[in-house]
């Protein structure tokens, strides 16, 4: 794998409630509440399979969500992962 590798806490450490298109997440380790819109919940679900770099994330999302594999998707996913990292839901390395 190349580039940064992302990982997330086990899904068991998050309490997740769907509310009309948005996802409310209670993150047990930090005690913080997050309101997530797509594709953040999908990224967390893909990371539940284990750590992954951007290329692996694209492969998982294509498999899980029938993602269009057209070019230019990697920077979008990297930006969303950085947001989740800033929120404390995703870690690097």
């Amino acid at each position: 794998m190349t580039g940064p590798v992302y990982r997330a806490d086990s899904p068991a450490l998050r309490l997740t409630i769907e509310l009309e298109g948005l996802t409310l997440v209670y993150h047990r380790p930090s005690g913080t509440t997050h309101v997530l819109g797509p594709p953040a919940p999908e990224l967390l679900a893909a990371l539940a399979e284990g750590p992954a770099d951007i290329a692996e994330m694209v492969r998982r999302l294509q498999r899980l969500h029938d993602l269009d594999g057209g070019g230019g998707i990697e920077p979008v996913i990297a930006a969303r992962l950085e947001e989740l990292e800033a929120a404390g839901l995703v870690h690097r390395g």
Binding site: L19, E20, G21, L22, L24, T33, V35
Partner: peptide, 11 residues
């Protein structure tokens, strides 16, 4: 008001 906004306002 959407439920997510209701939730945030109530927090």
């Amino acid at each position: 008001i959407g439920p997510a906004e209701v939730f945030v306002r109530l927090t």
